[in-house]
Design a protein around this nucleic acid. Structure first.
Length: 117
DNA sequence: GTCTTGACGTTTA
DNA sequence: CTAAACGCCAAGA
């Protein structure tokens, strides 16, 4: 059936993103690319970012735990209060300096590994 | 209908 | 090493 709209498929993609983001444990962060890769869309990391933008409709989606590949809080400006993001991360034990996650490599949470690939 | 922008990441020059 | 282009797909103008 070709009548399937891309919107529906992409909605499913978004839903998977939210599911993974919800599974991110406290004190840990992940990257858009890691999520995209886990979903099989390694080069569609932008869609993950777009999904996060739509994630504001959802409650249990800790978008503050998602940063770019270098651990930079690129999306902090999209929160209600940009300060809330790093503050929230600080509460979870994640140190943020200059909008960048300290020891990003240590706190990095890869779904492909933590979830068992 | 086309063109530009975007919470990114990889590859190539 | 740094800088730029490409890919990816969707939404807004």
């Amino acid at each position: 059936m070709k009548t399937i709209r891309l919107s529906e498929q992409n909605a499913d993609f978004f839903d998977r993103v939210y599911e993974v983001v919800r599974l991110i444990p406290p004190g840990r962060v992940t990257s858009y690319g890691a999520i995209a890769s886990y979903l099989g869309a390694k080069r569609s990391s932008r869609m993950v970012g777009w999904a996060m933008n739509a994630a504001h409709q959802h409650r249990d989606v800790p978008a503050h735990r998602v940063v770019n590949r270098v651990g930079l809080l690129t999306g902090k400006m999209h929160f209600a209060d940009p300060e809330a993001m790093e503050q929230r991360l600080a509460e979870e034990g994640i140190e943020v300096k200059e909008d960048q996650v300290v020891d990003f490599k240590t706190v990095f949470w890869d779904p492909a590994i933590e979830l068992g690939f």
